[in-house]
Amino acid sequence: MNTMTVEQDKFNPRPVKFVLWLFILSSIMMFAGLTSAYIVRQAEGNWKIFDLPSIFYITTVLILLSSATMHYSVLQAKKNNIAKQQIGLWLSFLLGAGFLAGQYMGWQELIANKVYFVGNPSESFVYVISGLHGAHIVAGLLLMVSALIGVYRNISQTKNIFRMELTSIFWHFIDILWIYLFVFLLINR
């Protein structure tokens, strides 16, 4: 019976992974709220039209690449190929940080084009939406740091894969989220 008890009580990653999915769901609802507000507000008229910064196209490529390297890293982790997993993680981290820097440059490009945060709501929305997405990127980068720390500290393979899975689920989510937001902003101007 002791073995039964242990079996019931051993570390089960499923509920925790599920918690992450639910967090993603609530995050989706927040952005759905924002983009719906965007459409409702746009329909009322008095809406300034401007071009999105060109660097957003480059950052979109960066985050797509980072998703690919993240996927590579998880695959290597599952093959117990720690060195290659590290390379994949570092690459994803650098690409992610590059994305964040690029978004910031995008804001500066907007300012140079006289599109200010305090102005017409159409302008403010671009800052708010990309800014909140940026906050998600920061969270994703922190998850990567925790996965990296795990790798260097040689945590058990089960836990390593668990951390990698959490990180990659979240990272792919914010990748897809950005593509949705970018396409949304491009279409609804």
Partner: peptide
């Protein structure tokens, strides 16, 4: 709760920007 509170959060974030940063949502 998980589906509706984030939408309030979105609304309140915009409200905070209106209050403190001068936006006009």
């Amino acid at each position: 709760g998980v589906l509706s509170f984030p939408v309030l959060l979105a609304g309140v974030i915009l409200l905070i920007f209106d209050r403190s940063f001068g936006t006009s949502f």
